[in-house]
Amino acid sequence: MRKPFDMELFLAGVLTGSHVTRKRHLRQARIIQKEIAERWQLETPWAWQRKHVEWFLVHRLTQHSKATKYYYFLTVRVLIRRLEKSWKFKQIL
């Protein structure tokens, strides 16, 4: 039996800011992970490609407010920093 991926441990080195901000990033990162895992069966961020994250930003957030999209965009930037990728996304607002 595999242990579930620990997003909190994964992001621990790059999360900064207040307690509330860190909790929001963790909650949103788990939601992104869940959505990508359901769609492409990729359980960990290490397996993600740019297209998977872009799909989430474009297709899963279409009905959300501009503020929510912005906060998810910030969480994606934290994930990209942790993955040490050079992915660029247009800010979706």
Rank of each mutant, 00 (worst) to 15 (best):
L57F: 02
E43M: 03
H64Y: 14
G13L: 02
L83N: 05
A67C: 11
R82E: 15
Q41W: 07
A37N: 09
D6Y: 02
A47N: 14
L61A: 05
R24Q: 11
Q91V: 09
L15P: 02
E35M: 12
W48C: 03
R82K: 15
F5Q: 00
E43T: 08
H59P: 01
Q41I: 02
H52C: 07
W87R: 04
T44F: 06
Y71P: 04
K69V: 00
E35R: 14
G17N: 09
R30E: 03
F56S: 00
R27Y: 13
P4K: 14
M1Q: 12
I31N: 04
R24D: 13
W48I: 00
L15R: 01
L93S: 14
I31A: 06
T16I: 12
A29E: 03
Q63R: 15
S18F: 05
K90V: 11
H25K: 08
E38N: 14
Y72H: 04
L83H: 07
M7P: 01
E84V: 06
W55F: 15
H25C: 06
R50M: 07
I31H: 06
E84C: 07
D6W: 03
P4N: 15
K66P: 11
S18K: 10
I36T: 04
F5S: 05
Q63I: 08
V53L: 15
K85M: 11
L79I: 14
H19R: 15
P4T: 13
W46T: 11
L26C: 00
V53C: 07
K88D: 11
R81Y: 10
E8T: 09
